[in-house]
Write a protein that binds this DNA or RNA. Structure first.
Length: 700
RNA sequence: GCACUCGUAGCUCAGUUGGAUAGAGCGUCUGACUUCGAAUCAGAAGGUCGCAGGUUCGAGCCCUGCCGGGUGCACCA
């Protein structure tokens, strides 16, 4: 029986870990050591320099712990350098002895057409992995990574698509932090846009309410139907209102004028409508932040568009763009009177078809223009700054700030990131590309790579999900693979509704399994399970996969789900709860002696050999890949890798748990090994889950 | 029309600079609870990796063409 090897991981060299704590070695360090040895051996033996040196996990545990396909690469290099043709297998044979000298390596085999397969000294590595772990160093002087996510229009409740954005962004933030990065999290608040204006039109012209009446309404709403839910419904009513009650009809120009009037009032600021809109937007932001808090998602700064306008960020950016010749004024053609950003790379049939308008002929700025200004600020290249005030203080000391226009004494350092990740759905990839190019044109030294569009596909509704929601579909919609959610049409699954449903489902399960828990503990546990289910569900898909939302799948706690992973971690905890401190201490002491006691080392090696031992060993090796999986997720900006890895680890542990009795094991050495392995898995699995934003309850 | 993206088991999806016998979950079928908690584990069935060429010692992955989904290409935000 062989443990799960399906999760295969490859390493990337990370210079910033190699310099730390030389006495605490991780699997990543060990791999690096082997690579260095191969590089120097290739240099000395064949006189060639290997550029990229990949490490693989062999497909089956019997083939070894690490595989280097370097001989194939070397054969090419040698041929290039000398013209001499060498057999990859022969090359591998000559490198073999160099690796066998290393302490942690027990033997090396050449396999297949020339793979160099390395087998580790299992007892020795168990000792290493079970020893003290290295914590991620916090380097405050490190360059800052900026991540913007969530950025929901503050005119309605968040739906499941918004949650995908927030969970992806938040998990990526956790990945960056786990990799040792300094990170600042922003949530952009478009409080002067059309969507807020629409809800304001609703309050003013449908509800005939003034600010005081809205406040009174807000105070009268209960938590089952809060302010953002009210706005959700009002927003869809406004959509119909514009179209004179016909959802598919055209906009009535007179009613559109109402929207434009509100919009102008918002942009101007300092009037009653703007004050009313500010209340509505701020209340929606509060509701959305509360929703995200339920999922463990937080921010450092809320950057408001109204402050970008009033602090004249755009005017500064406009000046910079003119100075650098990034935009030009068109005097003729169909863009006459506009400032445009020319694009030569596109080969449109029209001469200037692909030019992007930044300032319209009526002298207003496009969204892209404003975005370039904001992006310049994020990168510390605008030369202007916001003012700030505290938006919310959390009990644990975290502080959420919000921008403001009026000067203030408090002025923390925000912005000025070396890289900016914008978590925005893939439909925005064209405008995002223009922002990146515009910024790079203004500040050539930072280049386009400083602006990263962290794109993801939308969450859509499966036809089945629509039926469950009681949404009537047209024949055209029914033939589609999925139906896009629409805030304007009120078509979507509200985030809080789904979380409530998940919590209720989890509570039923918890009550079944742990009837003796207090009501509060049951609820708290159900909450953690619900968060695990939702976050994992949204993370297990890669970013460019459209999620066709399915209730059955999202509400499941079995199979490849968050609760499954949680459950495995809960089991590790319950083992230690039952073991007792002395037994654990004895196991620790035993494993610690392995390096100095030859007889003991042989016994431990014996436990880790054979089919059963190899399964245990494979689990241990898998657990040590967390560090490189984090690095890989950081480089690829793909949190799904971590989700898949975590599941593979939980799965592998579940099998181990099933195959071995840990507490009742009578053989002292064997028990020591099983306990040490369980302890290592508990640490790694709990850490991996924490990065996914999933907590491990005591029981579940 | 142009650009981007996807097409892998009945369904939903992984599959990393090309590398060893293409993997999970769900569903179906067969087993395992006098339990370190079955939200679990074991086993079986299930594949022309959209199609056709090409490059390579080697292609699910790279190149070309085609077919079929999706998204984006406004003086909207």
């Amino acid at each position: 029986m062989v443990a799960d090897r399906s999760y295969r991981s490859y390493t990337t060299y990370r210079p910033y870990t190699a310099i730390l704590c030389p006495f605490l070695m991780t699997l990543t360090d060990l791999q690096q050591k082997l690579r260095d040895r191969i590089r120097s051996a290739a240099r000395e033996t064949f006189g060639v320099e290997v550029q990229q040196l990949s490490v693989e996990a062999p497909p089956r545990a019997e083939l070894g712990d690490l595989a280097f396909p370097v001989s194939f690469e070397l054969a090419k290099l040698i041929k290039q350098a000398t013209g001499e043709k060498q057999n990859p297998r022969a090359i591998a044979e000559r490198l073999k002895s160099q690796l066998e000298d290393i302490d942690e390596v027990s033997r090396v085999e050449i396999a297949g057409a020339g793979y160099i397969n390395v087998f580790f000294d299992r007892a020795r590595l168990l000792n290493l992995f079970a020893g003290p772990t290295r914590s991620v160093p916090k380097q405050l002087d490190q360059p800052k990574q900026m991540v913007e996510h969530t950025s929901i229009n503050p005119n309605k409740a968040a739906h499941i698509g918004h949650v995908r954005n927030a969970v992806l962004g938040d998990t990526f933030v956790r990945i960056l932090k786990a990799a040792g990065d300094r990170v600042e999290v922003q949530n952009y608040i478009d409080n002067t846009g059309v969507q807020v204006a629409d809800v304001v039109v609703g309050f003013l012209h449908l509800e005939q309410m003034d600010l005081n009446q809205i406040k009174a309404l807000d105070a009268s709403l209960n938590k089952d139907y809060p302010f953002d839910y009210y706005c959700w419904d009002l927003y869809t009513r406004v959509g119909l209102f514009y179209r004179d009650g016909n959802a598919g009809g055209d906009m009535n120009p007179e009613k559109v004028k109402l929207r434009n009037d509100v919009l102008h009032a918002l942009e101007e600021g300092g009037n009653e409508i703007a004050e009313l809109a500010d209340y509505v937007a701020t209340r929606n932001v509060e509701c959305i932040i509360d929703t995200m808090e339920r999922l463990g998602i937080r921010y450092d700064l809320l950057a408001r568009e109204s402050d970008i306008l009033h602090l004249h960020f755009w005017e500064r950016a406009f000046q910079l763009m003119k100075d650098k010749g990034v935009i030009r004024y068109e005097t003729a053609g169909r863009h006459a009177g506009c400032w445009v950003m020319p694009f030569e790379s596109h080969t449109g049939t029209d001469e200037h078809e692909s030019d992007k308008i930044i300032v319209r002929s009526n002298r207003t700025v496009t969204y892209t223009g404003k975005d370039i200004a904001y992006q310049l600020w994020k990168l510390g290249k605008l030369g202007l700054d916001f003012n700030y005030k505290v938006f919310r203080d959390y009990p644990d000391g975290h502080v959420l700030w919000v921008t403001k226009t009026e000067p203030g004494t408090e002025r923390p350092q925000f912005g000025g990131g070396v890289t900016v990740y914008n978590v925005i759905d893939s439909r925005q990839s064209y405008p995002q590309e223009i922002v990146a190019r515009g910024v790079a044109a203004v500040v050539p030294e930072i280049g386009e790579d400083a602006s990263v569009h962290f794109s993801y596909e939308m969450v859509a509704l499966s036809p089945a999900a629509c039926e469950e929601l009681g949404i009537e579909l047209s024949d055209e919609d029914r033939s589609r693979p999925y139906i896009e959610m629409s805030g304007r049409k009120g078509l979507g699954v509200k985030a809080d509704d789904l979380i409530n449903q998940l919590e209720a489902g989890a509570l039923t399960e918890v009550e079944k399994r742990n009837p003796d828990l207090s009501e509060n503990d049951k609820k708290a546990t159900a909450h953690e399970v619900a968060v695990a289910a939702l976050r994992y569900f949204l993370l297990k898909f890669t970013r460019n996969t459209v999620i066709a939302f399915d209730f059955k799948e999202a509400l499941s706690f079995e199979g490849e789900t968050g609760p499954y992973c949680q459950y495995a971690a809960v089991r590790t905890n319950s083992i230690f709860r039952k073991l007792g401190n002395e037994t654990v201490a004895a196991a620790d002491a035993l494993i610690e002696q392995v390096v100095s006691d030859g007889a003991l080392q042989a016994r431990v090696a014996e436990v880790l050999s054979g089919d059963s031992g190899t399964e245990i060993w494979s689990l241990l090796m898998l657990s040590q890949q967390l560090e490189e999986v984090i690095a890989q997720c950081r480089n690829s900006a793909e949190p799904a890798n971590l989700a898949k890895y975590t599941f593979a680890l939980a799965r592998s542990f579940s099998r181990f748990y099933h195959d071995h009795r840990i507490i009742t094991e009578e053989d002292e050495v064997r028990r020591g090994v099983l306990i040490a392995v369980t302890k290592v898995i508990r640490t790694q699995l709990t850490n991996a889950l924490a990065i996914l934003g999933i907590n491990v309850p005591e029981q579940m």
